[in-house]
Write a protein that binds this DNA or RNA. Structure first.
Lengths: 214, 214, 214, 214
DNA sequence: AATGAATGAGCTTTCATTCAT
DNA sequence: AATGAATGAAAGCTCATTCAT
């Protein structure tokens, strides 16, 4: 967070950081077009030509601001991660406790994904182009998440447990529900989804009668 | 195995279905090599030449048995799905109830993934090559799963709820934990993971005091 | 010389050494076409497409046998050097002494260059693509040459002197005369050229009266 | 210097001949940078951007003073040739006779090349970019040289002979010795080189006993 | 005059697929 | 059935040059 101010992200890694406002605009247009194109065609099917066409610039212009297709994907993943994180923080700011925060976070995530479907595809494809960026995406996500669970655990809001494992479980839940209900079939109301997960987190899956053991 | 008869168009597809035992062996060698190669290099980086080299045959031989690289991926996903399902069914056969089945299933999945890391990558990459095969993989998986939850619900083993949503949540949990602990870092004992998830499913995430609401 | 038998030159560095006679023929056709194309258009202006067109094969076929344009240039220089050396050895075999050998060698070189004009251009351009190959071309040439002068010096055929310097001077003479009279303007009879150089080598440039000093 | 007036079309070519002193300076800076860049990277590897970066100006500024990369090379060759010729004339001014002039000229050439290594590369590469400029470089050089030999011949300083051939032989000697001892390996003292060539020119290569014939 | 963004033709290289043997 | 050579479309990328400011 602190470095978000002093370091202009990884943006400075391009062959030429734009020096004029016009250049800045063009660079942004291309990055946006890359997001759309990767999102719709997929990273591998998307050619530089597709991106520049979508951006309305000549193909060579891409290389005025980006070193390579792959490097652009990296930058995109980081930027999209930043945006998502900012969205989630904003949307969960009013939560009274962890459980409520989980509910608000899940709903916010589903909405965000429905509005930004490219996020999912770009992220998933990045996984096999450069695993490290994908890992760092989830690990940076996970670390904060773990701290939040630990805090909630200390405050007695949630049961003690292995927070790392629980965090990855929770991220898995969001991820799959997002894929299924925010990207594939959008017929189910998010309230229903959130309520179901909420029940799972508040009461578990087991019926009261099956709750003993371990 | 039985469906290999009913869906021959997909399972045994290829310009020439092998008629000799030797041909059968060659085809199997190539498919195995494709699995390994897709698993290690990834679908896009893997070339037909890499596959045939790994299989120990000439590059042209690939097309004696397979229509295309993409079609091969499809076949692979189906076969890998079948194998995984068979494994899980075998490993959860002795479960006394749904919760126990969940525990055994998760452990079995983690083990399987650790032993067959290619499964994850092949499946994930297939998602963007042909979404339909990926969806049908999870949907066919999900349908059985939903029926199981419904049965357990009827038997009073688990709380009533939206089974479809719960199934996708559960699949998300397995998937992420598998990626994190069976593929990336293998330092955590599966017992710990299963216990944590088990606690979540049996008692929820919330502490007893925070359990009211809805 | 000895390795010319056991090691198939640098030819084996291509992506695929041809395994069939047909492949052997194609590879040779491409290399020949590369020589012609580099010779006429020059290394930089010559595209792979020019080469393959001249060879009568598809553009991709080039990469069946060669790793890159640059690597091909390297191989070409080595092969052309070998051929020239073989030619000179053949043509100077009957020389009675060093001076006669110089005459026969110069004439043979001029003739060879006139018949193989590509040699000059390919070699000169290679100099700036990969200096090492150019240096090794001349140095391997020079080493033999030095030994010959040393032998002649021992036998009293030539004046004692710094053989290395003399060799480079002699190579410079051939080179420039070749460029001027075998490539640019072919109007002068080689006899005249050889006679002039011969006089220079036998009697020096200075008139008898100016011959003292040092 | 004087011909800068008579051949303005070539020497001062450019879309806009600089009118201000500042423009003059910029143009000179770019030309100097071109020399350095062509010399170090080579004509083909050197991009306009490399040149302007070295000159400390924006890339577009190049075209304020030069028509094209190729045209710049041409101008450079001419200028470098002029400078070399001026240097040689200065350094050989005190020579008493032709032989001494050859010695002083060779030494001066070696020194000049060692101090201006770009000369060699720029010249050699120009050869295949525009043969005519290369030819005219050597031919203009050669013509003066021939006249000098003819004069020396008339004065009885050197043996009569085909001066054109001898001139090209002499230029070849300088060229190769320069490459070998002023650019590649600088370990040998120029005195030794000059002495060796001097002996060759004064007494020939042949020992006294082998001097008959023709 | 000077800047730096923008252009787009052209290049080398890859590789799934087909063909000839 | 099997081989490996041959294909050619397409991709990513470069860079001399032009344009807008």
């Amino acid at each position: 967070m602190t470095d978000a101010v002093s370091i202009p992200a990884v943006a400075g890694s391009g062959p030429g950081v734009p020096k004029t406002a016009r250049g800045e605009r063009t660079r942004a247009r291309i990055l946006k077009a890359a997001e759309e194109t990767f999102g719709s065609l997929g990273y591998h099917r998307a050619g530089i030509a597709d991106i520049t066409r979508a951006a309305g610039v000549a193909s060579g212009t891409f290389y005025t601001y980006f070193v390579s297709k792959e490097q652009t994907l990296r930058e995109l993943v980081q930027e999209m991660g930043r945006r998502l994180r900012a969205h989630l923080e904003r949307e969960t700011a009013d939560a009274q406790d962890r459980l409520e925060s989980e509910e608000m976070g899940l709903r916010a995530f589903l909405q965000y994904l429905r509005d930004n479907p490219a996020l999912y595809r770009v992220l998933q494809e990045a996984q096999f182009v450069d695993e490290s960026i994908y890992r760092s995406y989830y690990e940076s996500f996970g670390e904060r998440y773990i701290r939040m669970l630990a805090g909630a655990s200390d405050r007695g809001e949630i049961r003690p447990g292995n927070d790392e494992v629980r965090v990855w479980a929770l991220m898995g839940i969001s991820n799959f529900l997002g894929l299924r209900y925010a990207l594939w079939e959008k017929e189910m109301h998010f309230d229903e989804i959130v309520a179901t997960v909420s029940d799972l987190l508040r009461n578990g899956l087991a019926s009261a009668g099956a709750r003993e053991k371990r």
